[in-house]
């Protein structure tokens, strides 16, 4: 009997501890600084959505679909909009490999300059699938924080990556709902 009570108490304590730990993590969301550079990882068109969100949030942002390290001179935050589009890649004169290479350079530059990376996945279910997933699994781990639209995380791929690497992440119902966490993430 006593043993059982101990067990229950122990579990309870563990539960409270984990919950509080998690809550602690959520309160300790990273705070990003402006100005921010928005670019795409995979040339999905949601990069424009991100730009509109930034505008609505009143943030000082610039948009470059094919940003290169030289565009990061006076930048305090790098926003990567995850999601691949074949049409988009073709249009930018890139293929999967070149696009990855481009993002790699950006990420390296960001790490060198200590610029934090914010990852957005706004395309939902439509912006998943083999091609997009490659970009997600490749670049999401570099994020300081991530905001994802719920329908794009049905299989929990994005949240799993974030949890594995202790990246704080927010799930929103629709792309428009990303406005609030996006705004709050900045000073």
């Amino acid at each position: 009997m006593i043993k059982n009570i101990f067990k229950i108490l122990f579990l309870l304590a563990f539960f409270i501890f984990t919950v509080s730990a998690r809550e602690k993590k959520e309160t300790a969301l990273p705070v990003f600084e402006q100005p921010l550079l928005i670019t795409s990882a995979g040339q999905g068109a949601e990069v424009y959505l991100a730009s509109v969100l930034a505008k609505r949030a009143g943030l000082n942002s610039s948009l470059s679909k094919i940003a290169a390290p030289k565009d990061m001179k006076n930048i305090k935050t790098l926003v990567l909009v995850l999601g691949a589009s074949l049409k988009g890649l073709g249009s930018a004169g890139l293929d999967k490999a070149k696009e990855k290479e481009r993002i790699n350079l950006l990420v390296a530059e960001a790490q060198k300059k200590n610029i934090p990376i914010l990852c957005l996945h706004l395309g939902g279910e439509a912006r998943r699938g083999k091609l997009s997933d490659e970009f997600i699994t490749f670049f999401l781990p570099f994020a300081k924080m991530a905001i994802v639209v719920k329908s794009g995380n049905k299989d929990r791929l994005l949240s799993r990556i974030c949890e594995e690497r202790n990246i704080p992440w927010k799930e929103v119902e629709k792309a428009a709902d990303a406005l609030k966490p996006f705004k709050e993430a900045f000073k």
Partner: peptide, 11 residues
């Protein structure tokens, strides 16, 4: 349809 089924490769 076959190209679409292999969309992750270089089209």
């Amino acid at each position: 349809p076959f190209i679409l089924a292999m969309i992750d490769k270089n089209a």
